[in-house]
Each structure stands twice: as structure tokens, then as C-alpha cells.
């Protein structure tokens, strides 16, 4: 089965909950476990928050894009912004690293994404925005395939 969903919304913090609930509702057709659904909601929240705070500097302008694909018992979620981007992706992925310590960020966003998803790929360049591609295989579908 191939199925896809696309979202585009303003980079405002009010939309963080809308984003994670929408992705969870779309993914529900895969009959995920409650744990899997919570993990997906959490990683969407992390990546969308990064786009709003770091990509667009919380100025309320700009759009966040989510592309979601279901195929072969897995979900791929791509979360993209057209904000400032970053030079050093490896540094941003380090646990506890934050570029904005004054905002009381925990620096755990990417660590959570890496722990809750099977694959996480980040591409970014200064002035060209950031894209986070994440993939997760559903446990139940794995058993069905065997």
C-alpha cells in the first residue's frame, strides 16, 4: 500500500499540537501501538518546534511543510522549513547541545528523534532552510511479513 499526506502551515507555536495530532491521525490507519503513536507525536513536535524556534526565530512568518508517506509497513515523515538553516548539523545533533541556552531549551530534540525513530537524516545549509527526514517501521507489520 502506498499512501501519502502533505501539510503546510504557519510557523507559529499554536500549530505544534495541530501538526502532531494530524500526523498521528494519518498514521492511525497502520494500526500502530500506543507507544508507536506517542513516539511519532513526540518526534513531529520536536522537529516542528525546531523549525519554528531555530528555522524562523519565532517571528511567526514562514511556513512549515510536512510530507508523510506510508509504504511497506513503515512511515516516512519529512519536516521542512525555509528558514535560516545551519552550518553544523553534527553539532546540533549532539545530546544537550542548544544554540539558544537563554530560552531554557533542553537540547534533547534530536536525541529524542534518533531514539524514537529508526532513521533520522538532517540536511541543512545557512540561508537554505532545514529538512529532517525520519523513518519508522511498525512492529506489527514486521511480524506479518515474517
Amino acid at each position: 500500500m502506498n499512501n501519502e499526506m502533505h501539510l503546510k502551515f504557519s510557523a507559529r507555536s499554536e500549530n505544534e499540537s495541530f501538526a502532531r495530532v494530524s500526523v498521528a491521525a494519518f498514521v492511525a490507519q497502520m494500526d500502530p501501538t500506543m507507544d508507536e503513536l506517542t513516539e511519532i507525536k513526540t518526534v513531529v513536535s520536536e522537529a516542528v518546534t525546531n523549525a519554528i524556534i531555530h528555522g524562523y526565530g519565532e517571528n511567526g512568518d514562514g511556513m512549515v511543510y510536512i510530507d508523510c508517506y506510508l509504504h511497506d509497513g513503515a512511515v516516512e515523515i519529512d519536516i521542512r522549513d525555509e528558514g535560516v538553516g545551519m552550518e553544523n548539523v553534527e553539532q546540533a545533533r549532539q545530546p544537550l547541545y542548544t544554540s539558544k541556552p537563554e530560552l531554557e531549551r533542553s537540547g534533547m530534540g534530536f536525541t529524542i528523534m534518533e531514539n524514537f525513530m529508526d532513521e533520522v537524516e538532517v540536511s541543512s545549509a545557512p540561508g537554505h532552510g532545514t529538512t529532517v527526514k525520519m523513518k519508522k517501521f511498525f512492529k506489527k507489520s514486521e511480524t506479518l511479513c515474517n
Partner: peptide, 13 residues
Amino acid sequence: SFMDSSGLGVILG
């Protein structure tokens, strides 16, 4: 019912 790393940040603060 839900928390992400932003919640952790505020608690740590």
C-alpha cells in the same frame, strides 16, 4: 498526556 523536550527544558530551568 503528552510532553516533549520543551517541557524538559522548563523543568530543568
